[in-house]
Amino acid sequence: MPPAVETTGLRKAYGDLPVLESLDLRVEEGTVFALLGPNGAGKTTTVRILATLTRPDAGHARVAGYDVVAERSRVRRAISLTGQFAAVDEMQTGAENLRMTARLSGLSRPAAGRRAAELLERFGLADAGGRRVKTYSGGMRRRLDLAAGLVRDPGETAVVFLDEPTTGLDPRSRQELWEIVRDLSEGGTTVFLTTQYLEEADRLADRVAVMDAGRILAEGTAQDLKSRVAGHRLDLVLRDRESYLRLTGRAVHHSPESLTLGIPTDGSAREVRALLDALDPDRTDVVRFALHTATLDDVFLTLTAKEPTHV
């Protein structure tokens, strides 16, 4: 079974601006994969290349076993894409959008009508199906967009790409979208999503790749990543501003208003003790401390920090 997504040495630049620098990715079939990174990391460009909308400058990418450049049409028939901007017509109703998409996917007119009705039902839009999309809320729009990507038989769509699917959604809509992703995954569809939210990657994804400035900084399960960087974070509350500033370079987490710094550690008593001694030899600067299990946030900040952190 070929991987659902595989890229080797993928490069892309817009003019002089490099966006992707030799990207290597591998996503196994039936898994949920999250590409995690800040704005401008190259996440959207990656998805656009994989979804055949943008050509790479160099390197290769295969989706569902097909080359995204040479076998573009085959790839297009195997994927669906929901981008950051709803790809639906505002002035058509939800049902009209879905019927149109279904017709363009090769369904007959009656089949398109049935599929549109099924999808509206499944995505909680049955009552809104006859209304123009411009009257929809952000969450409804996103759900309709996702539905439009799934007009083929569920089994026909091998890989679903979701580019920042929950950006700009309220918490309830976000939960609903997470449910949909889990349903898709249970049905055997591979889901490739991008996100800026560590919580989202942590909750949904089997594997997470952390991306910044066109490169993959780390890849693994959320658990792997947390332990790879440092399993725990030692939060120190410092006596004054002076001691805070002295130690700030060592921290991955900064909270100047509460004079708190977070330092990565493996969490063992020995290392914590040694760390405290090393950071505060006179035993005067650290007022209190607390030990937390590292969050993906910590991983992310450690990996994307501009200055190297030494522990």
Partner: peptide, 28 residues
């Protein structure tokens, strides 16, 4: 359920696109 996936013909695609454009015109 496999009522799907003949590659749609050029006429179907163009007709669908024209239907859409006419609907959008009617709403403008």
């Amino acid at each position: 359920m496999s009522e799907t996936l003949a590659v749609p013909g050029a006429l179907t695609v163009t007709g669908t696109m024209a239907g859409r454009a006419i609907r959008l015109s009617r709403r403008n």
